[in-house]
Write a protein that binds this DNA or RNA. Structure first.
Lengths: 180, 180
DNA sequence: TCTGTCGATGAGACCGTGTCTCATCACCGT
DNA sequence: ACGGTGATGAGACACGGTCTCATCGACAGA
């Protein structure tokens, strides 16, 4: 979407706060009114790509074997979410991450999206009969792994997202089981 | 603060979106300009009470013994944060919780505040030499326990916040160590 | 070819949030 | 009485976000 590209460019070039929605729209050859027909607010174009993350995690978890352990369900979810991390996304990832990190208003939205992912995983696990505390812990580990993998993947070590996520989840699991 | 009371009352009575800042200010006998001298935006009066939570957690963690385990540090932090949950706060807690839960804009701010608490705990643990993964997991368990305890405390089973937090942390820890 | 529908867009009015500047006023120490 | 200081009021302002009405092109059918 041209609006997404325009938003990332302008927010990165001249800062998020000093950029007006009208500017973003005009760079995309559109008007303010049209911008708000595509996005509910000024921040959302930066997170539009993440809309599918929740759906992918849920779908992946649903595909796990009926007798899978909570962690196996989370691993299946992460594995399935790999589909969202295409080479094309990789182009935008670093700038996107930097822009978001630089503005509280955007970090706030990011925190909200993250909470949503945690909810999705927790709910899925609960529906499989996992007890509350275990579901919550497994979901948090999964989302933490998800984000850590994204960070590394953005930096572009060349590793595939799937491998990174598996590695992070394993490390967090090891930390969790040996916690005292 | 009169503004905080006015905000909670109006947001609960007639909804958050349909309430204007001018209305909140006027109920407190002030004007819009003065409102923004006390709070950076329309949402913040609802979270002003939580400003000290981060500081309390950090202070509590700092007081833990030098050879305390990560979980003991987190427990010390939670124990110290108990100071914020006074009987007077209990009066506002249920309505506050309901209002926040009813509006995405407010849930977003809540998620951000939660992320901040996680950062505080993680940083504190890292400074104590705890490795990254362990610090992250311990911090997340701590914050999750913090919030679960707050939920129960808001419902007013009469239990003290400290006891609730200890109980939740213990349950989450048990779930984490037996995770597979 | 004419016509009518539909989806996407533009134009522009409108309200509320949040910022800023200037003026006022109470309080306080001298 | 004086000057300083901090809190407040008044009001202009830019921008975010909503809404309504008009326009335009694509397309289907007579």
């Amino acid at each position: 979407m041209r609006l997404v590209r325009a938003a990332i460019d302008l927010y990165a070039e001249q800062g998020y706060e000093t950029t007006t929605v009208t500017q973003v729209a005009e760079r995309a050859g559109l008007t303010k009114a049209t911008f708000f027909r595509h996005f509910p607010d000024k921040r959302e174009p930066l997170f539009a790509g993440q809309a599918e993350h929740g759906a992918l995690l849920a779908a992946g978890a649903a595909q796990a074997a009926a007798d899978a352990t909570p962690l196996e369900v989370v691993a299946a979810a992460l594995d399935h979410a790999t589909a969202a991390f295409t080479p094309e996304q990789r182009e935008f990832a670093p700038r996107l991450r930097d822009v978001v990190a630089a503005h509280d208003e955007l970090r706030e939205r990011a925190a909200f999206k993250r909470a949503h992912l945690t909810d999705v995983l927790t709910t899925t696990l609960r529906e499989r009969g996992v007890d509350e505390a275990t579901a919550a812990v497994a979901a948090e580990l999964g989302v933490e792994a998800f984000h850590r993998a994204f960070e590394h993947w953005s930096d572009g070590d060349g590793a595939s997202y799937g491998e990174l996520a598996r590695h992070e989840l394993h490390a967090l699991h090891a930390a969790a089981t040996s916690l005292r």
